[in-house]
Design a protein around this nucleic acid. Structure first.
Lengths: 349, 349
DNA sequence: TTTTGGTGCGTGAACGTTAACAATTTCGTC
DNA sequence: GACGAAATTGTTAACGTTCACGCACCAAAA
C-alpha cells in the first residue's frame, strides 16, 4: 500500500518542515483560512482564529517566506549599499537603519562596494535586485554612489543617506554639513580668533565639500581672511601632514578639521611642533566620534547624530514605498548637527 | 477574442518581468534548457548554450531567486548575528564576512541584537531562520551570544567569530587573545620593567578574560609581581578612570591596556597627572585601530587582523555547510596577532 | 416573501523555478 | 549498417504561499 504521506526526496533529507496544509489539517480548516489568520484578515471568526493559532503553536509553524515572496513579489527585505562601512559613521548608519527596519518588519541585506568603480556599484545593485529587495538605501558619502542609484530598476524605491549631495538619482537624507561647519567656524571667531584655518577632507566627497563651503562662507561673512584649502583624506595621517604645515605658520591660531580623526593627526603635529592646544592654537573637529572627549586635550567638535540619520532615511524610504507609483520629486532632508564644546578651543594667545 | 497574454493583475502593476519561459521561447528551447544553462549543467550543446545566453542578454533576464529558493530550499543567503557592530572590530568583521561571502556567491542578511537578553538573540535567530538563510555567523564577543546559537534549528550551520570563547554551541574563529596579551606583556618585561599593570576590559567578555589570563601567566612565568586587576568597559572613559588610579601609584611603570580605546583614556590620565609616556610610564594597547599610530605618543599595540578573521569564519561555515549532515565536533580556530612597536613603550626610567 | 449584502470559509489556479523522468538524437563500435 | 550507450532536449510535477473566485449562511431591507 502506497504511503499517503509523500516522503521527502529519498527520505535522506531533513524531515519535511511543517507547512500551512499541516496546520490547516490540525485545525480542521482549509489552508486559505490559515493564511488569513497569518495575515490578520478580518473575516475570520475569533474561535477559528484561536484554533488555528493553537495549531501553529503546537506544530511550531514558520511560514515560508520564499513562497510568499514568489507570489506577492515582496520580499520584506531592504537592500543596503554600503561604502566604507568600517568607518564609525557608516557603521553607525548601518546599525541605525537595521534597527529601524526591524521595527518596521523588514530584514536588511547588505552589499558592500569596496571602491566606486561604476561596475562595482552596478553589480551591488544587481545582486540586491536579484534578491528581490523591496527598496534600497545607499550609504552614499560620495556622489558617485548616489548617481549609480539611477541604475536601480525603475519601480524600486531608493534613498541615499549620509553625504549624498544634490542628485536627481534619489531623495537623500544627510547632515547639514554647511551648518555644522558654520557652527565650528563661528565658535572660533566668537572666541576672538582673527581667522580660522581648515584641514579639509577629500575634495570629491560632498560632505567635505559642503564643510569647506560652510567654513568659507562664515569667514567671508565675518570679513575674515580666507586661508587656502588643501584637500586630504579622512584619517589621522592626513591630518598629521596638514598639521605640520599649519604648525609651521605662526599666524595660525585656530583650525577647523573636517572630522575628528583629522583633528587627532593635527593635534599630534602641533604637539610635536611645540605649539600648545588650546593655549596657542584652537582645534575643532567634526563627528564627535566615541572617544573624542579623551583626546589630548578633549576635542571640541560638531556632533552628528547617525542614529537619527538612519531612522530618517528608513522612514523616507518606507514613505516612498507606500506612495503611489507616481515618482515624487526627490527631495533632501537635512539633519542639524550641534557643537560640543570641550577643551581644545579657547581664545587666541 | 481573449488576449493570449495574461495581463498582469489589472494592468495597473508594473510590466511583467521576463521569466525563463520568455527566454526559452526566444531561444527556441524549453525552459528547462534555460535552467540548465543558468546552472552550468554540462549536458548542453555549446551552440544551444550560446543561443540561450544571447536570449537572456537581449531580454535582460534575471532569475527569480524566490522561486529557486522555494524549490531548492537554499536561499544562497547567510545570516549574520551582529552585536555592537558600530565598534571598529565588529564592523570590520562584518565587512570582511560580507566580502568573502560575495566572492563565494552568497548574500548576507544581518540581524543586530542590541543587548544580550536571551529572547532578543533568539528572536534574531528566528528572523534569520524564517528568511531561510543557509547558515549563520554570529559576531559573538560574548559567550551569551555563542550559547544562544544552540537555539538555531538543527541542520542549520553556525559559526561564531570574535571572542566567542569555548562553547559547544558552535565552532568558533577568534584571535588568540592570550598569545596577544603575552606578546604585549613580554615586550614590556623585555624592556626592563619589573612588572606590568593591566587596564582590563569587561570581565564577562571572553576576549577580556583571555587577555587577562595571558598577561597574568606571562608575569607569573617571569617571576614578576601580579598586580590586582579591575575590570572596566571597552572605551576611553573606562581607561581614563583606571588611568587615574594607576597614575597615582609611583611604582607603575608599564601598563598593558585591553584595547586601544582604553589606552587612549589611560594616556590622557597619565598626561594630566604629569607622568610622561614613554619616559615615565610605558603603554601598550590591543587592536591597532586605524589611528593608533597618531595618539600622543603613537601607540605600541597588538594588531589583530579582522579581515583574516572574517574570511576564516566564512570559510569554516562553508566547509561545515558542504560537509555531510553528521555533526562534526565543534573546533576552534585561533588567529595569531602580532606586536606593532611604536613610541609609547620604552625602558623604565 | 424575496432581495440584497455582508460574513466566514473553501476551491482552484497562479507565482517561476528545479527535480525526475521520458524522449529523442548523436556517436562510437563491432 | 545496427546496436547500445551517452549526450542532449522536452514534459510534467512539485515547492508553499497568496489571489480570485464561489458557495453557504444569516440578517436586514424591500
Amino acid at each position: 500500500m502506497p504511503s499517503t504521506q509523500p516522503a521527502s526526496h529519498g527520505d535522506g533529507g531533513r524531515p519535511r518542515l511543517t507547512v500551512m496544509r499541516d496546520v490547516a489539517k490540525l485545525a480542521g480548516v482549509s489552508h486559505q483560512t490559515v493564511s488569513r489568520v497569518l495575515n490578520n484578515h478580518p473575516n475570520v471568526r475569533q474561535e477559528t482564529r484561536l484554533r488555528v493559532l493553537d495549531a501553529m503553536e503546537s506544530l511550531n509553524y514558520r511560514r515560508n517566506l520564499a513562497a510568499r515572496t514568489l507570489v506577492t513579489r515582496q520580499s520584506h527585505t531592504l537592500g543596503i549599499i554600503g561604502f566604507e562601512t568600517t568607518l564609525f559613521g557608516p557603521a553607525s548608519l548601518l546599525y541605525a537603519i537595521e534597527s529601524a527596519a526591524r521595527d518596521a518588519g523588514y530584514m536588511v541585506s547588505i552589499a558592500s562596494v569596496r571602491d566606486l568603480e561604476r561596475r562595482h556599484v552596478v553589480e551591488a545593485v544587481d545582486r540586491l535586485t536579484q534578491h528581490a529587495v523591496d527598496g534600497v538605501i545607499a550609504i552614499a558619502p560620495k556622489l558617485a554612489v548616489t548617481n549609480a542609484l539611477a541604475q536601480v530598476p525603475p519601480g524600486l524605491r531608493r534613498v541615499a543617506v549620509g553625504g549624498a549631495g544634490e542628485s536627481d538619482a534619489a531623495p537623500a537624507v544627510g547632515i547639514d554639513n554647511a551648518a555644522g561647519a558654520r557652527l565650528a567656524t563661528q565658535h572660533l571667531l566668537d572666541l576672538g580668533h582673527a581667522t580660522v584655518h581648515h584641514a579639509a577632507g577629500p575634495a570629491d566627497w560632498p560632505e567635505a565639500h559642503e564643510r569647506i563651503e560652510g567654513w568659507r562662507s562664515t569667514l567671508y561673512a565675518a570679513g575674515a581672511v580666507v586661508p587656502p584649502v588643501e584637500p586630504g583624506w579622512w584619517d589621522a595621517e592626513s591630518g598629521y601632514e596638514r598639521g605640520r604645515q599649519l604648525a609651521a605658520d605662526p599666524r595660525v591660531t585656530a583650525i577647523f578639521c573636517a572630522n575628528d580623526r583629522i583633528a587627532l593627526g593635527v593635534l599630534r603635529a602641533l604637539h610635536e611642533a611645540g605649539r600648545r592646544v588650546p593655549e596657542d592654537v584652537s582645534i575643532v573637529g567634526f563627528d564627535d566620534m566615541p572617544d573624542a572627549g579623551y583626546f589630548l586635550p578633549p576635542l571640541t567638535t560638531v556632533r552628528q547624530d547617525f542614529g537619527e540619520l538612519g531612522r530618517r532615511a528608513l522612514a523616507l524610504l518606507l514613505e516612498h514605498m507606500a506612495g503611489d507609483s507616481a515618482a515624487q520629486p526627490p527631495h533632501r532632508i537635512l539633519v542639524m548637527p550641534h557643537l560640543v564644546a570641550r577643551a581644545s578651543s579657547a581664545p587666541p594667545p
